[in-house]
Amino acid sequence: MNNLPFLLIFIPFLFAWYLNFSATRLDRLHHRVETSWANLDAILQRRAALASQIAHLPEIDFASNLILTSAATQARSADIAARSEAESGLSEALRLLRDESEFPHQYPEVFAEMDVITERLRTAIALHREAVASTSARRRSLVIRVFRLAGKAPLPVTYPFEDDLL
């Protein structure tokens, strides 16, 4: 057939284009995961900062102060392996304080700020999970695995603490 040479050039070209296209897509997804984690991380830091601020409010009892301060410090200083547990601990400490004490009524402004942060945290977690889910799904596809288009990028993960707040 006449068009055989044409096909011989065209098919590899098309395939190369497809590989490039897939790599671009995956790169964009990885970028989305990074952005969403950066957001989430920033909000977690703000939450920890506000928690230590609450811990130093006057009239707070010694036990609450102790729990909050240690939870907030842990959340701020934990390395990546211990991070999830630390954030869960802080969530739990804040929940205790909110449900079982009078402080939310005594300091409505601080706790209103905490509510805003919690709301943003929920959104950030939802977006992070969504980004991680799409990216992992994409990375399972055959062409990505066979041609190692993901390179050395680590597989994105969600953390257990993200379940606590939803």
Partner: peptide
Amino acid sequence: NVYLHAAGEGEKVSVESESRGL
């Protein structure tokens, strides 16, 4: 709130050059 999450660090929306891959 969702906009703020999407916007990240002051990056603007731009036109993706059509044949970037090629």
